[in-house]
Nucleic acid binder design. Structure first.
Length: 251
DNA sequence: AAAATCGTCAACCGCATCGGC
DNA sequence: AGCCGATGCGGTTGACGATTT
């Protein structure tokens, strides 16, 4: 039998759905053989798991989910299916694609490897704290109450989102539709992480960290927007420590 | 307006693992 | 113990729409 490849048609989807509704998941080679689909068992399984399961969420990976992905990846590496188990409705494929298209892109733009210490440092000291901050901001804006970020522990040197004890790690937000992807390189210039940590500011329409290189500080970064204002927060070790304390107090 | 480039994501492939025989 | 088919996993590819030149 010639096997069909490529994108699934609506007709194939409905055939697969009808078969699984009657016979249940599993025995994918039988599905392929008996449903009338000219697909391999593998292809049927993949289509069902990544696309047709009723609980599947699609698109708009929320800030909370981004935070989880970053942290779980730092703990487990490319164990996509394991990471996906902690993100209900998300597939390993979707998480893997998120990592490749968003996170690896950042590393590439920073001209370093995604597994390098430099990138991990930047992620820990900038990206994750900023995610936490934005989650907190979105919670407060919708509820007027401080957000509750459970399961987040702190460590001495840096902001560290610790998912233990899993699977309780969750960031409770009443509204997780906010899903714009944070861009590490919006504010990162490939000098050094320490420069970055020392001189970042909140600014821009989206609260994007902004950095500007100045002639006077050619080996560092000055406060963006022409100077520091009371609304701008220096994103340095002190603030990271402050955020740690805040989060710790909320536990 | 057309071509080139980029970003996203569904789907495929190869390998590993598991369980039945 | 070894074989074999089924399933799971992670890496990679390619189509396609969006954006830039």
């Amino acid at each position: 039998m010639d096997v069909k490849k490529g994108p699934w048609t609506e007709e194939e989807d409905s055939m697969l759905k009808a078969y699984v509704n009657i016979h249940g998941e599993g025995r994918w080679n039988s599905v392929a053989r008996l449903s009338g689909l000219r697909r391999t068992g593998k292809s049927c399984r993949l289509r069902w798991l990544n696309y047709m399961r009723p609980e599947i969420k699609r698109g708009n990976i929320s800030l909370e989910e981004q935070l989880l992905i970053l942290e779980l990846h730092s703990r487990w590496g490319n164990r996509w299916s394991k990471i996906a188990q902690h993100l209900p409705g998300r597939t390993d494929n979707e998480i893997k694609n998120y990592w490749r298209t968003r996170v690896q892109k950042q590393a590439k733009q920073m001209k370093c490897d995604v597994n390098s210490k430099r990138f991990k440092d930047a992620m820990r000291s900038v990206w994750i704290p900023r995610l936490i901050e934005r989650i907190r901001a979105s919670c407060q804006s919708t509820t007027g109450q401080p957000s509750t970020i459970t399961g987040i522990m702190t460590e001495s040197e840096s902001v560290q989102v610790d998912p233990s004890p899993l699977p309780e790690l969750s960031v409770t937000s009443p509204d997780s539709h906010v899903s714009s992807v944070l861009d590490l390189t919006d504010c990162y210039k490939p000098q050094s992480v320490s420069n970055y940590e020392a001189a970042g500011t909140w600014g821009g329409d989206d609260g994007v960290l902004e950095f500007q290189e100045t002639e006077e500080h050619s080996n560092g970064w000055s406060v963006g927007g022409g100077g520091e204002s009371s609304m701008e927060t220096m994103w340095n070790e002190e603030n990271i420590w402050f955020l740690q304390q805040q989060l710790h107090d909320e536990d």
